[in-house]
């Protein structure tokens, strides 16, 4: 068995160990690299930045706990920018597993930092089932779909909700998501009610949404942890996404190295076997 064959039959657990070491290494030896801003992220930042003070913005927590590492930094950065701009923030979720808990925890934490008052500066609507009907129904009346906020207070008793009836009273929708719900925010809400929609999505989903950016149905896009890191820099609140970029870099380089090694070993091994057949 040649060295190339041995490389090809490397136990998967050695690869796992290499990945683990590549993630841990930057925690021991800190490194920093410049993060450049892509136009899609700047577009989203500018869209919110150009909103008049006290505009009502809907921020969605359409993600499961499984993708918190990618999506939570986006929500945190979004809340930072929105509260810095004194926007009124209306949060909700269409994700049943964890969505309401995450929205509650993250929003209250950031609101506290800016001394924002619940019911006056922000409201968490929580969750309602069947997202297609929820998105469509809020076009007529938010209160019909959400008679109360997440903790059970009737919307009519919340000062902020006195002037918010439906999408007509919302200036911008910021969708943070890890699933296909973004398509419906575009095809139902943006297309039928004309509200600008910007989104922060997991990297797996980001390539698809370039088609919405191209058709101008989407105003700005944060793609994965890198998108979140760029946005954190623009908001001037460096957080988990910026911290994660060095680790991300090393593992990407490791995987590129593994792909090259795998290909070299594959072709070298194949050539050796062909030579062997001639003899």
């Amino acid at each position: 068995m040649s060295i190339w064959d041995k490389i090809l039959q490397l136990d998967r657990r050695w690869i796992y160990l290499m990945v683990a070491l590549a993630v841990i290494f930057p925690l021991i030896v800190p490194m920093t690299f410049k993060i450049y801003i892509t136009p899609e992220v700047r577009q989203l930042y500018n869209a919110i930045d150009s909103l008049p003070d006290s505009s009502v913005v809907m921020l969605t927590f359409d993600y499961y706990p499984s993708t918190l590492a990618e999506t939570e930094p986006m929500s945190v950065a979004a809340l930072n920018q929105l509260f810095q701009k004194n926007c009124k923030v209306l949060t909700l979720t269409t994700v049943p597993l964890g969505g309401p808990s995450i929205a509650e925890r993250v929003t209250r934490k950031i609101a506290k930092k800016y001394h924002k008052v619940y019911g006056v500066d922000y409201v968490n609507l929580g969750y309602k089932a069947n997202y297609v009907a929820v998105l469509k129904g809020m076009g007529t009346s938010i209160e019909a779909i959400y008679p109360t906020d997440n903790s059970g207070t009737p919307l009519s008793k919340l000062p902020m909700m006195k002037h918010i009836k439906n999408y007509n009273d919302i200036k911008f929708i910021f969708v943070v998501s890890d699933n296909g719900i973004v398509d419906y925010w575009i095809s139902i809400v943006n297309a039928q009610y004309g509200i600008p929609v910007g989104s922060g999505v997991t990297a797996v989903m980001a390539p698809k949404f370039y088609s919405y950016i191209g058709s101008k149905q989407m105003t700005g896009l944060l793609g994965g942890m890198k998108g979140a890191a760029e946005y954190e820099i623009l908001v001037k609140e460096r957080g988990m996404a910026v911290k994660g970029m060095t680790m991300q870099s090393l593992v990407h380089l490791l995987i590129i190295g593994l792909v090259i090694l795998g290909n070299v070993a594959f072709f070298a091994s194949r050539r050796n076997h062909k030579k062997g057949e001639h003899f």
Binding site: E70, T202, A203, M247, Q248, H252
Partner: peptide, 11 residues
Amino acid sequence: MARISLLIGRV
């Protein structure tokens, strides 16, 4: 990129 980000969160 997505999968590594999730690992980074846990590590």
